[in-house]
């Protein structure tokens, strides 16, 4: 991990922890805006993290950004900073000055749309900046705001460079959701291990039972797989741009979705009744995991795309196509 990346990751970690951990998730689910947390994130310049330095941003790589999203996922992503990072990257790439405040990314329902200072609308290879109009509030089963927001007066509109391609909003969102899933899975796995070492039945910690150990070990494999898939995807974006990283992003979203399903089921099995209570923190993460599977393209959506391409190319091309995507080292 680069030094800058570890500093940023540490800062985000601290900001979210200071904001109150699970308390801030409960607050968001009750419909409040996490103002202190947002102010802290913006003060660190995180909203401009993916904007190049020459445009006044931080100029992080997508790999760095993914590392930050993992941390956010670990804490349940209580504010729309990941979406704002992506929206700002799109605006700046299209030559539009990035406004202050939370940006509502109109790629499907708008995350935290009711709190958006501005609306960012990706459409094909264009992106437009609008004032937010009428807002019909809605939420996903994570009880995160996912609103329908009308795009009012257009403030600016620009063309995305070829590196971003005609699906930049979708691809960026898919990578964000996959990274958040990786982080949230890491969190619930840690919670489950802790619980398995604490909760006693038949005179010993349930983590002493092989049946429990084997389930959690299998889940650890899934969590590791999502982490690797997200790294592969972020690295592909850094190497080739969003448009040419759709294979890796799709793979990451598929693996993340499958792992979210398996991981949530496993931890609920380990926690048993206490894990499905309102009082327990677990559901804040598992409900988000189930929601994030649906956003930025489902497993089925991406699998159909990748599978169709594999079939079109034929069996003999599958392996060479895969190895041809490797990041090339230099001598």
């Amino acid at each position: 991990m680069s030094e800058l990346r570890s500093i940023l990751v540490e800062q985000v970690e601290r900001l979210v922890a200071d904001a109150g951990g699970v308390a801030v998730l409960r607050m968001v689910e009750a419909g409040e805006w996490p103002a202190t947390l947002w102010a802290g994130l913006e003060q660190q310049g995180l909203n401009l993290a993916l904007v190049p330095e020459e445009s006044g941003g931080v100029g992080l790589s997508w790999g760095d950004a993914a590392a930050i999203w993992l941390v956010l996922g670990r804490h349940g992503a209580p504010a729309p900073i990941a979406e704002t990072m992506l929206a700002a990257a799109l605006l700046s790439a299209a030559g539009i000055e990035v406004p202050e405040g939370p940006l509502g990314l109109a790629q499907g329902a708008v995350p935290f749309g009711r709190h958006a200072a501005r609306l960012v609308v990706p459409k094909g290879a264009c992106v437009a900046l609008h004032a937010p109009g009428e807002c019909v509030p809605a939420e996903n089963i994570g009880r995160e705001p996912r609103d329908a927001v009308t795009a009012e007066d257009r403030i600016a509109r620009g063309q995305l460079p070829n590196l971003f391609g005609p699906r930049a909003g979708l691809l960026g969102l898919a990578l964000i959701r996959a990274a958040l899933i990786a982080g949230a899975l890491e969190r619930i796995l840690a919670l489950a291990v802790d619980w398995a070492n604490t909760r006693k039945q038949f005179g010993r910690a349930i983590g002493k039972f092989q049946a429990v150990q084997q389930q959690l070990a299998a889940m650890a494999g899934e969590v590791a797989a999502v982490h690797v898939a997200v790294h592969q995807a972020a690295r592909a974006v850094d190497a080739r741009g969003l448009a040419e990283a759709s294979f890796e992003i799709g793979c990451a979203k598929i693996v993340a979705g499958e792992a979210a399903t398996m991981g949530a089921a496993t931890v609920h099995q380990v926690f048993a009744a206490i894990g499905i209570t309102e009082d327990h923190e677990l559901h804040h993460f598992t409900r988000r995991l189930w929601s994030w599977r649906e956003e930025g393209g489902t497993e089925r959506f991406w699998a159909a795309e990748i599978g169709r391409a594999a079939l079109t190319r034929g069996g003999a091309s599958l392996w060479p196509d895969m190895t041809a995507r490797d990041a090339q080292g230099v001598e």
Partner: peptide, 29 residues
């Protein structure tokens, strides 16, 4: 994959896509 191209099976692309995603990820691991 070649057999499916000769005799298509409805919905096969989703299963193939999931397998390819897993393969690519395992390779990375």
């Amino acid at each position: 994959i070649d057999a499916l191209n000769a005799a298509p099976s409805p919905g096969a692309e989703v299963t193939i896509g999931r397998m390819v995603a897993r393969l690519n990820t395992l390779r990375g691991m």
